[in-house]
């Protein structure tokens, strides 16, 4: 560390930084942090999100569930990727979750998929939780659960 760098940092610590805190900062640290990142889809990961993620990570991509998905059979748009892909693909990156909102909210919660899962992923619950999150993350929409059957699932 050079003397110049040291002196500069000391000046920052004693003069500039306290002044900045005093004059330029508005709101709490958390509020400023949220304001900076939530608009970019970087909202905090909650305990509930993480619990859902840990359940969804048990998926081994075997595809058995899709043979029991009534919706995937009915809707070609959803089938292209598979609604079951919801908990594999969509669930990974919350910033891209709003793009999947349509597919996620289409789930009727029939649980036909769940009985077929070798590793016991609670698919309906995962999809429901992601649908609620996608709904909440959409700009301008209310943060409460959507009225679709999937979203009512606990």
């Amino acid at each position: 560390m050079t003397f110049g760098a040291m002196a500069y940092l000391a000046y920052r610590a004693i003069v500039a930084h306290p002044l900045k805190r005093l004059l330029r900062q508005r709101g709490t640290g958390e509020a400023r942090f949220r304001a900076a990142y939530e608009t970019e889809g970087l909202a905090p990961t909650t305990e509930a999100d993480r619990a859902i993620g840990l359940e969804a990570q048990a998926c081994i991509a075997c595809g058995l569930c899709e043979t029991g998905c009534a919706l995937a059979a009915a809707d070609p748009a959803i089938r292209a990727l598979g609604l079951h892909a919801a908990f594999r693909l969509y669930g990974r990156n919350p910033a891209e979750l709003p793009l999947a909102a349509g597919a996620l909210e289409a789930c009727a919660g029939c649980t036909g998929c769940e009985a077929l899962c070798p590793t016991g992923v609670p698919i309906t619950r995962v999809v429901g939780a992601l649908a609620r999150r996608a709904h909440g993350a959409r700009p301008g929409s209310p943060r409460e659960p959507s009225p679709s059957p999937a979203a009512r699932d606990p």
Partner: peptide, 14 residues
């Protein structure tokens, strides 16, 4: 930003 402990746990639970 500087975060207080309670703010930190809200933003990064776990």
């Amino acid at each position: 930003t500087r975060l207080r402990a309670d703010e930190l746990y809200r933003l990064e639970p776990g």
